[in-house]
Write a protein that binds this DNA or RNA. Sequence first.
RNA 1: UCCUGAGUAGCUCAAUGGCAGAGCAUUCGGCUGUUAACCGAAGGGUUGUAGGUUCGAGUCCUACCUCAGGAGCCA
Length: 452
Amino acid sequence: MTQTYIENIAEHVGESVTIKGWLYNIRSSGKLIFPQVRDGSGILQCVVFKKNVAEEVWNACQTLTQESSLIVTGTVRADERAPGGFEMDVTDVEIVSIAEPYPITPKEHGAEFLLDHRHLWIRSKMQHAILRVRHEVIRAVRDYFDSHGFILADTPIFTPAACEGTTSLFEVNYFDDEKAYLTQSGQLYNEATSAAFGRAYAFGPTFRAEKSKTRRHLTEFWMVEPEVAYATLDDIMDLAEDFLCFIAARVLANRRPELETLGRDIQKLEAIQKPFPRISYDEAAKMLIDGGQAFEYGGDFGAPDETFISSKYDRPVMVHRYPAAVKAFYMKPDPTDPTKALGVDVLAPEGYGEVIEAASARRTSSSFAIRSPSTNYRKKRSTGISTCGNTAPCPTPASAWASSAVLRGCAESNTFAKPFRSRERFTGPSHSERWTPVLWGSRCGRLEGAIP
RNA sequence: UCCUGAGUAGCUCAAUGGCAGAGCAUUCGGCUGUUAACCGAAGGGUUGUAGGUUCGAGUCCUACCUCAGGAGCCA
């Protein structure tokens, strides 16, 4: 018999169908057994009535344990007593495998335990909702750029050198006596692709060897980096604003049930509408000082500073023209005040901090050649490090670059946590908080501490 | 690296310096509509590690280990 997926079960009312999956939970009441079966697309309550099945089927159901694999066949029926509104009157059960005692019980668990069982944890309802929202965010990111004239040009993960010069890199052996580093940004390559295609983006994993221990940082995360030739800071701020609104709208349109499963405050996502407030660093600094924050003018904003600024707005706020000294070298100075950089940070609401950093980038100044990433890159070019199918190394003299702008937004962490040290894996708020802030929180893969 | 908190049954957590406990999970029994089902019974412990104080330490002290939250770093 062909397999039916639970997500399509409503189309099969009155029919006999076969579901192939795993036992999510089971309850019994004398001559009735209620196995809940999940197949990855959903969870379906089955009803096994002793009089309606063969004795061996009834006995088999007595042996089922949580997460045992099984194939059930029966008639689909709408029933308001069933979670989900549909259930199956079982006529046959084939047990594929009886699971050992399953470590994740239908009660509460701690973060450490759940991360040690991450391969099983992703079977739970909360994790399904989180990963489906993640999937929607990633699809929206791709759809946005694909439909706005950008070409996807992914960049190498093994790279010959740092590009921003500040963060620590993971070093790996690259054949005999060469060293390579896991990428911290595709930016150097994006310079080349944007000069070739005008609008290009890279979207992939990024690595930073910072022993940061906050909810805002991971050693491995996914980042999307669009680059637009000839764009100004205002152009790139418009892009960032439009991009975020698009993603929020898509998740709201397609993943509302998952957001509700997670207990997400949907109104806060619905508030993500244009226009976003745009304030200068000087204005933001004045807010902090007037608000009594421990902040010194001229410095970068700390996490509490960003939270304070974003708390004044119900939607993302764009802070532009930071002091050049606290920003990356590639940002172009503001012609009206060269001490300021033509860059912008987009701060998410609800204290999630910076989700996008963007800038109008230096590309033509001869003075930057000394510090030019392109210059470094040329020197290291002989390593020839490049990964298959990615942008080929192709350095160009600095003077040949057109002015362009970059927008870098972090998307998501990986599905599987635990890279090397537990402190560097998914981190999040106290697991006693039974919610998962999705969208902004997806940037750092928040923990959900309870099943289901 | 710094600050704060935590570590007890497979899991989540109790236990005034005085007998090591509960719920879930597991095993057995009961129940014809369960919704994290319920009811009854059983098994399950070197209280993170090493010292110390005390008649007596899960509890107090010291060091270390691990985890969590925050700071710094950083995106």
